[in-house]
Amino acid sequence: MFYRLSGTYHTSYASDRKLWKIPADRWLVIAVFVLAVLAPFYVSPLYLGSYVLPWVIWSAAALSLTLLMGMAGQLHFGFAAVMAIGAYSSIHLVRFGVPFEIALLLSGLIAAVIGAIFGGAALRVKGLYLVMATLAMQYLVDWVVVNVPAISGGAHATLRTPAVSFLFMDISSLASRYWLALGWAVLLTVFFMNVKRSSFGRALVAIRDKDFAAAVIGVDPFRTKLAAFFTSSFMGGVTGAILAFCFYRAVTPEQFGFNVSIQLVAMVLVGGLGSVIGSYLGAGFVLLAPIFLTNFIAALASAGWFPVSQNFLSHLPLMIYGAMIIGFLLLEPLGLAKIYDNIRKYFLVWPFRHARS
């Protein structure tokens, strides 16, 4: 069979730590990557700009938060504020004449420094207390953005992104903006897949499981958590800048509110904590499921299947969407990534079955 683990035995740590223990996994990833790169050629501009592009960007945002929540075990309910810092910083840096490539890195560094400052202040607390500390960051950043006109122009102002180029490539077209966002998502994916195998990744897992035990074996909890906040905030800041330039192209304070932070946490939880593919699945579910449900129910209502009021129809998709999230968490608490892993393990032994006791 083309997808089989039987007969593959690992005799060294190097072989056991391979990214692709099964060759079919590598070819599957290559096929998905090729399809993603060629998407502008076979996907209509409407679907590319309305569905695929935001899915890629929010998957990168979910990956950024997964490093902090999934690997380090640190709750963060103010990640939208981190992305807002990156978005506004990149716009002002480009307006000051900084090249867009450098502006992306600087906006990530600014978000990383501010995120690490709040993270360092919150490292003395855990659980719900840490949630409250990150909420304070969210509301403080929201207040500063709204009440400092030099940053956002005011509470109801819209800050447009300047025309820029990336590595001498004009990104005014939809396809170029999509390829830039896809490149950043792929870079984060490669980083996340390899950080799990590094000493930093193992330190994060040790801190997540038991920070006191990690300290006993030589892992510094404060430095490791601070590095997790810094790294995650850097990736979130760059993702916020890419979100502003590649998708929104004009930012307002409402685009990075508390509800966005909740959606990001939902993407990580529904997708699966600490999972790369879970970030993509969770972002797709949280972002696209309400849209598809709304269109589907609207089509059924227009056909006469739902003879109810329009007000009820407008709330029905959200009710079904919430019920689906609860159902996923009840049936499979480890998220969509675990469901995918269960299907994958089924095909590892297909057409045979596991031995039943």
Results as ranks from 00 to 15, higher is better:
Ala175Glu: 14
Ser199Leu: 09
Asn194Ala: 09
Ala185Val: 02
Arg197Tyr: 14
Leu204His: 11
Ala206Trp: 00
Ser199Val: 10
Ala185Trp: 04
Lys196Asp: 12
Arg177Asn: 12
Val195His: 10
Ser199Asp: 13
Arg177Ser: 15
Val195Asp: 09
Ala206Lys: 00
Val205His: 07
Phe191Thr: 06
Ala206Phe: 00
Val190Asp: 13
Val195Cys: 05
Phe192Glu: 14
Lys196Ala: 09
Ala185Cys: 09
Ala175Lys: 13
Ser176Lys: 13
Leu204Val: 11
Leu204Ser: 09
Leu187Glu: 06
Ala206Asn: 00
Ala203Val: 03
Arg197Met: 11
Ala181Cys: 08
Trp179Ile: 02
Ile207His: 01
Tyr178Asp: 10
Tyr178His: 12
Ser199Pro: 15
Gly183Arg: 03
Asn194Ser: 09
Gly183Trp: 01
Ala203Asp: 03
Asn194Leu: 14
Val195Ser: 08
Ala175Asp: 15
Gly183Ala: 03
Ala185Arg: 05
Tyr178Gln: 10
Ile207Glu: 00
Val186Ala: 13
Arg177Thr: 04
Val205Ser: 07
Val205Cys: 03
Lys196Ile: 07
Arg197Asp: 14
Ala175Ser: 15
Arg177Trp: 06
Trp184Glu: 00
Ile207Val: 15
Arg197Ala: 13
Tyr178Ile: 08
Met193Ala: 14
Arg197Gly: 05
Ala206Pro: 02
Ser176Ile: 05
Ser199Ile: 05
Arg208Met: 04
Trp184Ile: 00
